[in-house]
Simulated scan of single mutants.
Amino acid sequence: MIRNVAGSVLALAGATAAVWSPFRAWYDGRHGRDYAIDELFTGITDDRSEVIGSILAPFLFAALLTLLGVLLRSRLLVALAGVVVLGFTVLWMVRVGQAEGGLTVGGDGAGLGDGVANALGGGILLLIGALVMSGRSRAPHRVDRPPRHTRPTLDGPSPQDPSTPEPPPAHPRAPSPYAATQTYDVPTGDPEQERRDPPPKS
């Protein structure tokens, strides 16, 4: 939470510095809003551009990305805003260096002005803010696992398994009251043998 707040403050400060930079002097006292956006791709001229079509346009787009990134806690959007600011600033420096034959820094308003410093600083603050932010906190992924059953052993079912029914108690078999107490000889089917050995009388 603290990292998101600190990163958001840095990102908003960087976006503010980037949007304010075109209203400051960029080179030889000429403000950044005087440079047309298409001059960054075709070449720098002395023509003054309208504010909406100047270098301010990509910086406003970067500020919009910053606001969305802060609201959504998206480090990617904030980092993308920083890349846009730094990319257009470096591209402007390359085009001006080609038109002027080189870049100079002077203390009397000549050469690079504080507007370029604001743009570079704003882009760096945006990247630092994206690194400081922790982003969205993800909820832990919970997996519902089925109950674990233990395998029955040779000695019987495990007492830890509540799903195994208990076996019925073993009862000893009562003796039958009709059990025979006297043995009889089974006739063999031979009449001669039966006459010789009559069955005993009960």
Rank of each mutant, 00 (worst) to 15 (best):
P22R: 02
P175C: 11
D28E: 02
P169M: 15
H31C: 09
G109Q: 14
A13S: 11
S202I: 11
G123H: 01
I128N: 05
D34T: 03
A81L: 10
R142Y: 05
P162S: 00
L65M: 07
A11R: 05
V186S: 08
A139D: 14
L72C: 15
L103N: 03
L64W: 10
P175F: 13
G69L: 05
V9P: 08
P162K: 02
L154D: 04
L68E: 13
K201T: 09
V83N: 11
L127H: 08
A62I: 05
H31I: 05
V143D: 13
R24C: 13
R195D: 15
S54C: 02
D144V: 07
D108R: 03
D28Y: 05
D190C: 09
A63M: 04
S49W: 00
G122D: 04
A13N: 04
R73T: 15
S202N: 14
A119L: 03
R173H: 07
Y35W: 07
P198R: 00
D155K: 08
Y35I: 12
R138S: 15
P152Y: 00
W26G: 01
S176I: 15
I128D: 13
T188F: 00
D161P: 07
S163T: 09
P200Y: 12
A174W: 01
T188P: 00
L72Y: 09
P187L: 02
W26R: 10
S176V: 12
V96C: 08
G111C: 14
T42K: 08
V83P: 06
M1D: 06
R136K: 00
F88V: 01
V78L: 07
T45F: 06
P199W: 12
Q193V: 09
I128S: 06
V116S: 04
V90A: 12
N4K: 03
H149R: 09
A13Q: 05
P200W: 10
A139K: 14
R195M: 14
V51Y: 09
T89K: 06
